[in-house]
Write a protein that binds this DNA or RNA. Structure first.
Lengths: 97, 97
DNA sequence: ATTTTTAACTTTGCATTACAAAGTACTTTT
DNA sequence: AAAAGTACTTTGTAATGCAAAGTTAAAAAT
């Protein structure tokens, strides 16, 4: 009865990144400020977690103008979605002994 | 659609502590070395996470002799079980958007 | 009797992480 | 011109994670 702790992805251990990914599994695209409010974060904190996930290629960040305001949006990559699902499976297995 | 990230307990964020608690939800008591092997940890690493969980009163640690060997066992406190369940509920909610 | 092993830590040292707060740059609204 | 919004980056500090080595004490082996 050895326990599978390897498939628990370090990138998703943190609750903020867990939150970000959860949001991005349900919402195709979401912008900076919406995410910030959903998760109740400071700008800097969100930005840094986003950078982390982007570096691992789990999300894509794109910038455009909406009306005349700059707008940054996030979306999960296929790779990110897969990794997150794997993570959730590992979590589930772990919890169910 | 604000997201509940507060009920995600920081004490259980780490995968090792998550593993420890999962094991202790299923197994009433478990000893140091069994836990160590289950989770594939070094002595020091297990000891430090155990100390963390004990300080929060989520687990109890007891020592006795089995045969003639010292034996340390862990068990989750009622408080710990409740906190862990709350954590899992928060996780589930989060994941299901 | 002395060495080795087992159990369970504690300490050390280093690298990483988390996060608030302040600062930056550029734009737009007032 | 001043204030506010968007999206960062930088700074500073504290906490975390973890392997590896060291410690203590009892037990088993030689």
């Amino acid at each position: 009865m050895k326990i599978d702790i390897e498939n628990i992805n370090k990138a998703f251990e943190n609750r903020i990144r867990l939150g970000i990914m959860s949001v991005l599994m349900v919402n195709d695209k979401i912008d900076f400020n919406t995410m910030k409010e959903l998760l109740n974060l400071t700008d800097g904190n969100l930005a840094s977690h986003i950078t982390g996930l982007e570096k691992q290629c789990y999300i894509n960040v794109s910038k455009q103008f909406v009306g005349k305001k700059p707008n940054t949006t996030f979306e999960a990559t296929p790779e990110g979605k897969l990794a997150f699902k794997t993570h959730l499976n590992a979590l589930e297995k772990l919890i169910k002994g």
